[in-house]
């Protein structure tokens, strides 16, 4: 069976070389703009070939797909509700889903809301757009 790290190395090297070739041909970049990307791509290919000979990586901390999906879930939530609602809500749901009692989960959500409002909105003066679902209601 082909090792996953080798597939990753080959795919990355192919992608980088394809981008450089595209830049030289269809991208019509001037020669000076191609020199350094081509050198870097050469480095990716040469060191990639050397890296292919390396032994397989040792198993480290297990990373689960569920954890990745949980983290990714915050992204659509931000687009739908905006940072100011999405982040505290995400904290609440995440904590409840991980068997946290309602009170600590609520405290976490309030804590997150406080950080967002006090530090990022008041002190840093950041402007957060409302999400697609909330924006019509706020207007």
């Amino acid at each position: 069976m082909i090792r996953a790290d080798r597939i990753l190395i080959v795919a990355t090297a192919l992608l980088v070389v394809a981008l450089v070739v595209w830049g030289m041909t269809l991208g019509e970049y001037p020669a000076s703009a191609n020199v350094f990307p081509a050198i870097a791509a050469g480095g990716v290919v040469v060191f990639g070939v050397l890296a292919l000979r390396e032994p397989p990586p040792q198993e480290g901390t297990p990373l689960t797909l569920t954890a990745v999906l949980w983290l990714l879930a915050v992204l659509p939530l931000i687009y739908l509700l905006g940072f100011r609602i999405a982040l505290p809500l995400y904290g609440l749901v995440y904590a409840l889903a991980r068997q946290t009692k309602p009170l600590p989960a609520l405290a976490l959500a309030i804590g997150i809301a406080a950080v967002v409002e006090i530090l990022f909105v008041r002190v840093l003066g950041l402007h957060f757009d409302w999400g697609w679902l909330v924006a019509p209601l706020v207007r």
Partner: peptide, 11 residues
Amino acid sequence: LVPFLLTLALL
């Protein structure tokens, strides 16, 4: 810790 740190990282 995860949602709190994620909040800080994203903001």
